[in-house]
Design a protein around this nucleic acid. Structure first.
Length: 298
DNA sequence: AAGCCGTGGGC
DNA sequence: TGCCCAAGGCT
């Protein structure tokens, strides 16, 4: 039962739509949740941070087959973890996930915590991931805010093409849509994300397939453009990020062997930038230097 | 708090 | 073809 009269139709429409249109994703299956529990949800959410669903799925299954619980992951080395992370991107996430497993072992008796503050205290877990675990793994009632829910709420509720920059108000906006019953609230969270991922996307709002079309403030207002506050990503070609990515890729392909520093990015045109990238990887704990050679951290 | 952090696919 | 985007988090 929705707790706010204005939001009740939105929640009801989302719940009905989700029942028929939710994608069959691994972390939504009963067997998955029964087998891996909250840890499985936590791992999936780590991988889904800025990496598309379809690229995550095969990596997630391989990862959990190798490390099905926090204790097994905590027993691995960073090198093994980075190797298994492969080309998922943002390899510091792999390190954080490993450190989170260690913290769960050492501070939570090996049991994935349920409380949002305890989840927030784990490395690599912020507002989104903490609440996603609490809601999708434990069924608790919290607002789950990600790029999809922010865009959907900007359009449906506020009548704007794009969301404002992230702020604490996003949590209140999402909370205002949630029914009182925790199970229903969890579905509304998931359905809002799903709608943003598949129907009301950044590139296009497919109103013909949208269960909220008749309730949508942006559509009612005639799809005003508004002001586009999005910040452009820095150019990747020739960036430090590209250099870091290349260096780490070389070490992954070295299959556990060490490489001389000048063999890690052999054809990189800017030696200053190359050294800066390698130094920053070492500072981040993604690389280790030993006897003038480089290797994945032990 | 604005910028940084990988990687690949779609338009 | 380059640019935009992706279930964010950290500093």
């Amino acid at each position: 039962m929705p707790d706010s009269p204005a939001s009740a139709p939105i929640a009801s429409a989302l719940i009905a739509w989700y029942r028929d249109h939710a994608r069959d994703l691994p972390w939504r299956r009963e067997e998955y949740l029964a087998r891996y529990g909250a840890w499985g949800v936590l791992v999936s959410e780590f991988m889904l941070q800025q990496t598309p669903v379809n690229r995550v799925i095969p990596h997630l299954e391989a990862w959990l087959a190798r490390w099905p619980d926090p204790l097994s992951l905590a027993a691995a080395t960073p090198a093994e973890v980075l190797q298994q992370w492969a080309n998922l991107g943002y390899p510091r996430r792999a390190l954080w996930l490993h450190r989170a497993a260690t913290a769960i072992r050492d501070e939570h008796a090996g049991v994935t915590p349920r409380d949002v503050p305890a989840l927030l205290a784990l490395p690599g877990i912020g507002d989104y991931t903490a609440r996603a675990v609490a809601v999708f793994a434990f069924g608790d009632r919290h607002p789950v805010v990600d790029t999809n829910t922010r865009r959907v709420i900007a359009r449906v509720v506020h009548g704007r093409a794009q969301p404002d920059p992230p702020s604490r108000r996003d949590l209140d906006d999402m909370l205002a849509l949630l029914p009182d019953e925790p199970g229903d609230a969890a579905v509304v969270n998931a359905a809002t994300m799903e709608l943003g991922a598949t129907v009301c996307t950044a590139r296009r709002a497919d109103c013909a397939r949208c269960p909220l079309a008749d309730l949508c403030a942006w559509r009612a207002a005639g799809f005003p453009d508004g002001e586009d506050r999005r910040r452009r990503q820095a150019k990747y070609e020739g960036s430090d990020r590209q250099a870091r990515g290349g260096a780490l890729r070389a070490l992954r392909h070295a299959e556990g062997h060490r490489l001389p520093a000048d063999a890690v990015l052999p054809d990189w045109p800017d030696a200053i930038q190359r050294d800066r990238a390698i130094d920053s990887l070492i500072a981040d704990g993604l690389l280790e230097a030993a006897d003038g050679e480089l290797l994945l951290p032990r």
